[in-house]
Amino acid sequence: MASPQPRIGVVTYPGSQDDRDALWALAALDAEAVPVWHEEAELPALDAVVLPGGFSYGDYLRCGAIARFSPATAAVRAFAERGGLVLGICNGFQILCEAGLLPGSLLRNASLRFVCRDVRLRVERADTPFTSRCEQGQTVVIPVKHGDGRYVPPPDLDPAQVVLRYRDNPNGSVEDIAGVCNEAGNVFGLMPHPEHAVDPLLGSADGALLLASLVEAARDRALAAA
């Protein structure tokens, strides 16, 4: 049976940098990648949305603090509240935290240094729409590149919301947390960049495990809706 290409949007804010890589990676993994401009107050018909990395609005005040008020973020919030799949990568993770769609906050790296290298991550949960291609306990290698990636959870964070942990913590994140999901499990954010790791030529293809999981989950939803 021919399976339809799920439509996955990638939001471009002023200062987004990794939107093109995200679009390219999703297309390479057989999704229809749809660019979404930050001024769009309504999303086109989508099966999932990605908020990419970068430095939206110059990271002024706090990372993600201004992007939270853009029209597209309001549309993404409504999409998430309807149960839509939302993935935030790096700056996208920071935006989702500032918007209250994910718990916690991301602060300056404990080293005060920008860190740009491959990191090893432990998959804590393989039962999410973003990690279904992984196995629980598996180690994946995905690059980070950020100056503000130190995750601080709220005091009441449910440990079940931790999806990824660093095996070699690059930024001082509390409890080595690298990625968290919301309580419902349809919104996920992580500091590492899976879209930069979808081809072995670039050092690792482990990022494709996460993005292919998302594409598959989005395809299931597209089929269910059809």
């Binding site: 790296n109 005060l112 130190r150 601080v152």
Partner: peptide
């Protein structure tokens, strides 16, 4: 209680 590396530096 929040680590402040800038303050430490």
């Amino acid at each position: 209680g929040i680590l402040d590396p800038q303050g430490d530096a």
